[in-house]
Write a protein that binds this DNA or RNA. Sequence first.
DNA 1: TATTATTTTTAGACGCATCTAAATAAATGT
DNA 2: ACATTTATTTAGATGCGTCTAAAAATAATA
Lengths: 222, 222
Amino acid sequence: MKIELSYTEENYLKAIFSLSVKKESAVSTNEIAQKLETKASSVTDMIKKLNDKKLVDYKKYQGVSLTDFGRSTAVYIVRNHRLWEVFLVEKLNFSWDEVHDIAEQLEHVKSEKLTERLEAFLDHPTHDPHGDPIPDENGNINHESSEPLFNIEKGSTCVLVGVRDSSSLFLQFLDNSNIKLGSEIKVIHKEVFDNSMTVVVDTLTRSLSSQITKNLFVKEVN
Amino acid sequence: MKIELSYTEENYLKAIFSLSVKKESAVSTNEIAQKLETKASSVTDMIKKLNDKKLVDYKKYQGVSLTDFGRSTAVYIVRNHRLWEVFLVEKLNFSWDEVHDIAEQLEHVKSEKLTERLEAFLDHPTHDPHGDPIPDENGNINHESSEPLFNIEKGSTCVLVGVRDSSSLFLQFLDNSNIKLGSEIKVIHKEVFDNSMTVVVDTLTRSLSSQITKNLFVKEVN
DNA sequence: TATTATTTTTAGACGCATCTAAATAAATGT
DNA sequence: ACATTTATTTAGATGCGTCTAAAAATAATA
Ligand SMILES: [Mn+2]
Ligand SMILES: [Mn+2]
Ligand SMILES: [Mn+2]
Ligand SMILES: [Mn+2]
């Protein structure tokens, strides 16, 4: 099942996909507008078009959800994005805070063969540099259980397995704090007042705001 | 000197650049239209815009030529294109007839750093898989003397250094004929009737039409 | 040189993706 | 339940890149 999609259509699908992951219900016009930094009226126009192309299900005023077709198209783009991020970090020695914007461009290059060759060249990576799983050629995503550091109880120890914010500023902050994927984090205090957390990483004690702990995804260890 | 160019504007610059290489005079509207498979009226509109942006010099009815700025922009895209072609062949094991269309997409990815890192990763290649020189980071192109096999005299021996047609059909024909960059070609007969040529490549004798010999670029050896 | 043919430009339209402003529907609060 | 706020859609416009048809300029030819 092939179809010619514009760069823009692909970005809408990707946005709807990522907004759908967290929620079960339909995605709202405004959510999409915010994510894509555009206006709600533009979103309405586009989702009508995507609806005509059977990529989304849309009822006026009822929000939008991906069809199976739309979902698999979105996943294919996500696959490209994450493979290119791995390439940039592993082969071209970019740091993890530099690759997202370039991958936003590369993900739209259309060639099935390119994707498969790239994946093989990279030795079939399972995760991108930010800990996000890379969908396989059939669109299956290996969802592993992880939760925001925000949820971890005082006294527990966990391992950082993903970051849910690819902005340079956030990632550079983590670099400067010596926090990386695989780091062991022990929660030693939770401040009720502002929900900040005191943790120990690499023998160093740090205080992390809730904005940060909500974007760090961890697995508990015993 | 930076400027935001659309995909389309870049393709026009590249087309004008490649048409300018052979000729000294200005490039005509129709030539560009033919190269880009579009209409002359569309070309007129676009070259007006490029003229406004100081990328080309344009006088009504007098054709168009690149400014220094336009030329360096075009060369930068050509550099990207050829580096990506090398990547696809050398690293992802594509054959030389598969890479042009993918590189047409990749060449538009905007990141100076990506270009430089890619070049280093590829060990600073000097030529792309079709024998075309790769401009360096300053836009300098190493023009080597070569001429179409068509011009070579009977009895001379030469080496294939470039192909001036990146179509799959042509390149696959060469593959099937065991003709590749570096192949030694000895001219043993030139047919006056249809300008075809009889040559020896790899101990095998072959007849090549003028359409072929005009697209094979060689260097004579003694 | 005058006539014809070709090339190039202009005029006017269209589809895409976007916007602002206005209208309408849905959600919220008293 | 009614009024108000918020979310969503529609109406109408713009810029980009394209097209066809017609006009204008240039080139070719008789
Ligand atoms: Mn990313
Ligand atoms: Mn990522
Ligand atoms: Mn090419
Ligand atoms: Mn090439």
